[in-house]
Simulated scan of single mutants.
Amino acid sequence: MNIMHQKVAIYNNKIKESAELIFESYSDSAENVGLTLVLAGLGRYKFQGSDFYTALFGLRALLEPKSIVICINGCRLDFVCSSMGQQMSQ
């Protein structure tokens, strides 16, 4: 399993805050990658998917009802990933 930590900006009810995004890749699971967003005082949100773009979209879907927006291009509503990009993200 490979793990990478990255600091990201989020908007929580239109207030900018910082958070930590943890990227995990698994070799022995049907879900190849996992993303965990660690928010100070608000807990952890985790989503697993077949590639990082699928996991980002799923994580965004978990957070939007809570008025939390991740400031990453892959989470934009108008973002479209090419099939080559999805293959490379695994």
Rank of each mutant, 00 (worst) to 15 (best):
L56Q: 06
F57M: 07
R44W: 02
V33H: 01
E31Q: 11
I68M: 05
L62A: 06
A19R: 11
K66E: 07
S67C: 05
M88I: 13
Y11E: 03
S67N: 15
Y26C: 04
M1G: 13
K46Q: 10
S89F: 02
K46W: 04
N2A: 10
T36G: 01
Y53E: 10
I15D: 07
Q87G: 12
S27D: 13
I70R: 00
V33L: 01
R60V: 04
K46P: 00
L39S: 05
Q87T: 08
V80S: 14
Y26S: 09
D51Y: 00
L37H: 02
Q6L: 14
R60Q: 11
I15H: 09
N32Q: 15
E20K: 14
K14V: 00
G58E: 04
D78I: 05
G43P: 00
K7S: 12
V80A: 13
S25G: 04
K7A: 14
N32E: 13
M88N: 07
Y53H: 12
H5Q: 09
Y11M: 07
L59S: 03
R76I: 06
Q86H: 06
T36D: 00
E20T: 15
V8Q: 06
A30W: 01
Y53R: 05
N12A: 08
R60T: 10
K16Q: 13
L35P: 02
N32P: 05
I72C: 14
I68V: 10
K7M: 08
G58H: 06
A19K: 08
Q6G: 03
G85E: 15
Y45W: 06
L62Y: 06
F47Q: 03
S82Y: 05
S25P: 00
L62V: 04
L62R: 05
I15T: 14
V38G: 01
A40Q: 15
M1S: 15
G34S: 08
A61D: 11
Y45Q: 01
Y11A: 07
L63R: 04
V69K: 12
S18F: 07
A40K: 13
A40H: 11
R44S: 07
F79G: 02
I72K: 11
F52I: 02
K14C: 03
I72L: 14
K14Q: 08
A61G: 00
T36I: 08
L77S: 11
N2K: 10
G58C: 02
Q48R: 04
V80K: 14
E64S: 05
K16L: 15
S50K: 15
S27K: 07
D51H: 02
S29K: 15
F57Q: 15
L63G: 01
L62K: 10
I22G: 00
S18C: 06
S50D: 06
C71E: 15
I10Y: 01
K16F: 09
F57D: 12
Q48C: 04
I68K: 04
L42E: 15
I10S: 01
A40G: 12
D78M: 01
L56H: 10
Y53L: 05
S82P: 03
S67G: 04
F57L: 09
L77N: 08
Y53P: 01
E17L: 03
G41Q: 03
Q86E: 13
R76E: 10
V69I: 08
I10E: 00
F23D: 00
A61Q: 05
T36M: 08
A19D: 11
E64Q: 06
L63H: 01
F47C: 03
H5D: 09
K16I: 14
Q86D: 05
M4I: 09
D28P: 02
A19L: 14
I70M: 11
S50T: 13
T54V: 12
A19T: 11
S67D: 14
Y26T: 04
